[in-house]
């Protein structure tokens, strides 16, 4: 009986701990949502009031109609999707090539690849800002996508080799005996097996491109071409009205991400634990 009682105490403490942790994790989100609906007077006179007294849509109206935020969201979507698509195609081919055709040299290659992860973005920023200018790609999505491939492809190859290693050779052999070509085996037999891994890798790539800030700051300066991260940066909090706009813009950016994250959270976790660690 005594141990049961102690166990219950322990479980209660765990729930209390998790509740506090969850409160700290969630509070900022709740706070920016509530703030984005408060009138400027309310924000400055009652900084501790929780719920807005008079709901206002004024900041959302300003952000969407005066600052044309949807355009920036569209830019971000375009750049991130293109980066993800190109990265996945190139990395899936490479990961499969490494696993199937160069199993021994491949191990060393992937180890070398992961060292590129330690290249500081700021180190690449110097040559990129010079090269992209020389190529005349400043203020273009092409220029931005090229630089995003630099960090997404090595990581994607690294994650994907882990998944491709789980495909049994016998299945491919069987397909080959049936007369399928190498490319067909890859597309029709291997890819469906590793599709969960591909989805996880694609999500990772997409999120990293969506959140990228430094290269976008250096390579895009026309507001019509800016991705959302840099467009948000151009807002500044010098007046209370600006803070309202910043909160509304933040909510617009963060809500879809959070829904997306909740849907895919198990997949990303699987990415690191199932794929690359083995």
């Amino acid at each position: 009986m005594k141990t049961v009682g102690r166990n219950r105490m322990g479980i209660a403490i765990l729930y209390i701990f998790l509740s506090i942790a969850a409160l700290v994790a969630v509070f900022p989100l709740i706070w920016i949502i509530l703030s984005s609906f408060k009138s400027p007077g309310e924000m400055s006179s009652h900084p501790l009031a929780f719920f807005p007294k008079n709901f206002t849509w004024v900041y959302y109206d300003r952000v969407l109609n005066n600052l044309h935020f949807f355009k920036n969201i569209k830019n971000s979507l375009l750049v991130s999707l293109a980066t993800t698509l190109i990265s996945i195609v190139i990395s899936a081919l490479a990961a499969y090539g490494i696993v199937r055709f160069f199993p021994n040299a491949g191990k060393k290659m992937t180890k070398l690849l992961i060292t590129t992860y330690m290249f500081p973005p700021i180190l690449l920023a110097v040559p990129y800002s010079i090269i992209i200018v020389k190529m005349g790609l400043v203020n273009t999505w092409t220029g931005l996508i090229i630089t995003y491939l630099s960090f997404s492809i090595p990581y994607a190859i690294w994650m994907l080799t882990g998944f491709f290693q789980t495909v049994p050779l016998e299945i491919e052999e069987a397909a080959r005996v049936d007369g399928a070509g190498k490319m067909r085996v890859f597309i029709q037999v291997v890819l469906p097996i590793v599709s969960p891994g591909i989805v996880a890798t694609a999500i990772y790539t997409f999120i990293n491109s969506w959140n990228e800030f430094l290269f976008a700051l250096l390579l895009i300066n026309s507001s019509a071409k800016m991705p959302i991260s840099v467009a948000l940066y151009s807002l500044n909090g010098s007046e209370i009205l600006d803070w309202g706009e910043m909160m509304a813009a933040s909510v617009i950016v963060i809500l879809p991400s959070i829904v997306f994250f909740m849907l895919i959270q198990k997949k990303i976790a699987g990415g690191l634990a199932d794929g690359s660690v083995k």
Binding site: L232, Y233, S250, S257, F260
Partner: peptide, 11 residues
């Protein structure tokens, strides 16, 4: 608990 992870740096 996972919510903070979804925040981009600027937000």
């Amino acid at each position: 608990l996972i919510i903070p992870w979804a925040f981009p740096a600027i937000v």
